[in-house]
Amino acid sequence: MANEQQGAAPGRVIAGGESLHRWGMVIDIDLCTGCQACVIACQAENNIPINVEDYFVKHRVNQWIRIERYWEGEFPNVKARFIPVLCQHCGNAPCEPVCPVYATQHSTEGLNVQTYNRCVGTRYCGNNCPYTVRVFNWDAPQWPESLHAQLNPDVTVRTQGLIEKCSMCVHRINRAKREESRNGRPMADGDLQPACAQSCPTSAIIFGDWKDQNSRISRLAKGTRAYHMLEELGTEPTIVYLKKVDPNLSQHEATVSHKTAYRPLPVING
């Protein structure tokens, strides 16, 4: 539970044992400009097929990270709000226990990993994801001839009929660990970056290791702006968001939770 004093801790990992790392991200919404660079970088890095207009119309866009854009206020005082949403790699992931064939599981390093070979495409995980970040391959992926050489050899190309989602660039993590053991020198905070974090012009996306108490994300998450997305669901995400700083908001509004299921309650019995 995050509160104003302690910031947001990374979600507990319910499954999986102890390991050296617990990967995670901090996303600073205050810094996000909605430029979509992360989306494109992710697309190129992870061999995601080109999203044509038809996909958008049919709500079948294949994006592992998306920028959600909301308009706030009445004209002329309209403000655009952006929030990048990607797989939250929940410690207590709703998608995991519902898969009948163990196609989605937790890695010991806190990643929610998808085993493409095993997936039969029941899409139950997609239904149960409260963040809607799991995408289904409705048809076989295709690229124009000119892009065939662009495909990343480190990442598999997924066929039709399976679920895929953000892997937090697990191939980069693995490569970094290999280099670490080859060089004999532990990697420093910031050496390793997934494509989205690397491409973010405002450094709104910061990747790091929660196990490292001095990593940038650990320090940022201690601030008062930190929160988890849909925290009340108890999914224990590994991704921490930093709240937008809005000078126009009153102190009260800034502290009110986004979700109030009940009306304000009167004090009963004195």
Binding site: V61, G126, N127, F136, W138, A140, G161
Partner: peptide
């Protein structure tokens, strides 16, 4: 042969 693209499904309405 062609995947489930012929259904009216989408990434939210998966069933």
């Amino acid at each position: 042969g062609g995947g489930l693209q012929f259904l009216g499904y989408n990434n939210q309405t998966m069933w």
